[in-house]
């Protein structure tokens, strides 16, 4: 078993290196200017695109670690984005500024919190089917997210709102490479990077982290150790809802306007978040890195254009989705926590 786990990781890493090598070789063979594609600007844009996915992934990871598969994160993201957009518009009376952006993110977190509590009660207390209820939340988001937009703007899309300004940290911003990537960009990127590290530390080095892991792996062991499994799971599910809502708000804050047509502006990023934490092997930092890969795929289009490779937008936009399928096919059998999806009832 241990060999399996270690072997699994080795295969994972080897495959990742393999893909990179193949990509570089292919690029060389096709005479693609890698240096022009992977620019600092590209990394910066990829990080911004990755931020909402990473936030969602970290939350979803906590829920699943605790034994509850929260596949409603896509729905939470839509609500997060829609709430942030409408709040920003309403509190500013139609001309939002930077302060309104932050207030909108805060409001979005609070609304997500309320939804997450209800959702957690349905999942845990009323033993809802986790898959069906999670899907339902997506559909509810797809309906009521644009609904909110129509109520406010009479259109599924918002007019141009305010996006978040870059934060330039003096001195640090001048550090080569890292400076522009982390210290002269959206402050939410730095926030997410810090959060990923904190989430990792919390999960591995605090008692609550221990409890979350035990709740998902062997709830009986946790129960016999005197900890209430249900409470741990409530906390984790609510956290995942809030994080996904925040992810949606951040997506909006980076985009600067709300899109409610089609699958809305979230457009599968919640699902990608789930795959990101599977790909990251349930490690918050790994999940954030995986999110960056998907963010990079998302931003590839601009890079290809700048170096003069004409691939239709429509198709390049599909790269992240194809990437997800590839990831799931190669790493499909990730070891999920043993007790995911099982309701736990204490002996008492």
């Amino acid at each position: 078993m241990s060999d399996d786990a270690a072997g699994d990781n080795r295969v994972r890493n080897a495959a990742l290196v393999g893909i990179l090598v193949v990509a570089v070789l292919a690029a060389t063979a096709l005479d693609l200017p890698i240096v022009d594609i992977v620019t600092i600007g590209f990394v910066e844009r990829s990080l911004q695109a990755a931020t909402p996915i990473a936030l969602t992934a970290i939350g979803g990871l906590y829920a699943e670690k605790s034994g509850v598969f929260n596949i409603g994160v896509e729905g939470f993201m839509i609500f997060g984005a829609a709430t942030a957009a409408t709040t920003m518009w309403i509190i500013s009376g139609g001309s939002p500024g930077q302060g309104d952006v932050w207030l909108a993110i805060l409001a979005s977190v609070l609304v997500s919190l309320a939804f997450a509590v209800v959702f957690a009660v349905l999942l845990i207390r009323y033993e809802a089917d986790q898959i069906v209820a999670g899907l339902a939340l997506w559909f509810i988001g797809l309906g009521f997210g644009p609904f909110m937009a129509v109520l406010v703007w009479d259109s599924r899309n918002s007019p141009s709102l305010e996006g978040i300004n870059d934060l330039t940290v003096p001195v640090l911003a001048d550090v080569p490479v890292l400076g522009p990537i982390f210290f002269d960009t959206s402050p939410l990127v730095l926030f997410t990077a810090v959060l990923a590290v904190v989430a990792w530390k919390f999960l591995n080095d605090t008692r609550y982290g221990y409890w979350i892991q035990a709740a998902g792996e062997n709830p009986e062991a946790l129960d016999t150790a005197g900890i209430d499994v249900t409470r741990v799971r409530y906390a984790a599910v609510i956290f995942s809802g809030v994080m996904a809502g925040l992810g949606g708000a951040v997506l909006l804050a980076h985009a600067g306007s709300f899109t409610g047509t089609g699958e809305t502006m979230v457009s599968g990023r919640g699902w990608i978040g789930i795959v990101a934490y599977l790909f990251g092997n349930y490690n918050p930092i790994g999940a954030a890195v995986a999110a960056l890969v998907f963010g990079g795929l998302d931003m590839l289009q601009i890079q290809l254009q700048t170096v003069g490779i004409e691939v239709p937008n429509r198709l390049v936009n599909l790269f992240p989705y194809a990437g997800v399928i590839l990831v799931l096919t190669v790493w499909g059998s990730t070891r999920t926590p043993s007790a995911v999806g099982e309701t736990y009832e204490s002996e008492e």
């Binding site: 089917d129 069906v132 339902a136 939340l137 509810i140 309906g143």
Partner: peptide
């Protein structure tokens, strides 16, 4: 879009 939301609610309650 309200109708889409209502459909989502139906699924949620069925779950």
């Amino acid at each position: 879009q309200l109708i889409d939301g209502v459909i989502g609610l139906v699924i949620l309650f069925v779950a």
